[in-house]
Design a protein around this nucleic acid. Structure first.
Lengths: 140, 140
DNA sequence: TATGCAGTTGCATAGAGTCTCAATTATAAT
DNA sequence: ATTATAATTGAGACTCTATGCAACTGCATA
């Protein structure tokens, strides 16, 4: 907890308060191997301290997003999932037929990033994208 | 209304009913130059016939999406926008700083589409994507 | 220690979108 | 024309996310 380089140390470096609520939220994000949803974070936090409000979870996630400490990915489940940036970037292919999720290395989109920067002067934030479509098994 | 090649004729060709509700929804989509949101469609439809329910709008949009007749794009406004496929594909660069929206030709992502197909056998549905980031004017 | 003040939280509420279920409507079959 | 069947709709409950506001927290200065 609060190891150097971790999200929590970054937060306090930037002058934000490390409240108990935030510490619990951050540890939920950090301890999740997978991509975690706001509701899942909330469930973990409430288990430890019942008086935490879900608004706080959403507000903390919003803050972390703005600071570039977590990425947000919509995998088409009707809820968004979060991932700490420190644990590496990657993208997902989401099959709209069978729901399969195939991980995709960041490099696949780096050429696009380059083109956008070169031709449009646009710095694309392509850290954690979900691309929808049809996977090998579901093609006719 | 119901011109050949239009969405409504496609719908009836596929065996779906062309109910008054759907006709009004389709004409709202077709007549919008811009990308239109569900609420905007609903507002237009209700103005003509008060008893239409917003569920019907969402259900119709879901159907059109599934049939590939409209594309859905989340430009980060907290609501999704729709666009008839017949009016051409393109992507958007959305600046997270100033909100500027820069249109982007479909071809920029066609190389990605090819790579995904070749290396993953994945048919990517990249018809109408919003890429977030920072535009030329907002770079430091 | 007391006071001011910005940061943060809980609560209540609102908006966007989804889902269930019963009622209605259209199509097909008799 | 009547009945059976399936598609579609409206109403309303519900989920996820965001926001306004008043209360609370903790640092900084007096």
């Amino acid at each position: 907890m609060n190891k150097p380089g971790g999200i929590s140390s970054k937060l306090s470096e930037l002058g934000y308060r490390l409240t108990p609520q935030r510490i619990m939220i951050l540890s939920a994000i950090d301890n999740s191997d997978d991509h975690i949803s706001a509701e899942e974070i909330y469930a973990q936090v409430v288990a430890k301290y019942a008086n935490v409000n879900i608004s706080t979870v959403y507000r903390t996630l919003e803050l972390l997003k703005r600071l570039g400490l977590v990425t947000e990915t919509d995998m088409g489940e009707g809820r968004v999932r979060y991932h700490p940036v420190g644990k590496g970037h990657h993208h997902h292919l989401v099959c709209q037929e069978c729901g399969a999720i195939i991980d995709l290395d960041e490099s696949v989109l780096s050429s696009v990033k380059d083109v956008l920067l070169r031709e449009y002067g646009f710095i694309a934030d392509l850290k954690h994208l979900a691309i929808f479509g049809r996977c090998v098994n579901c093609r006719k």
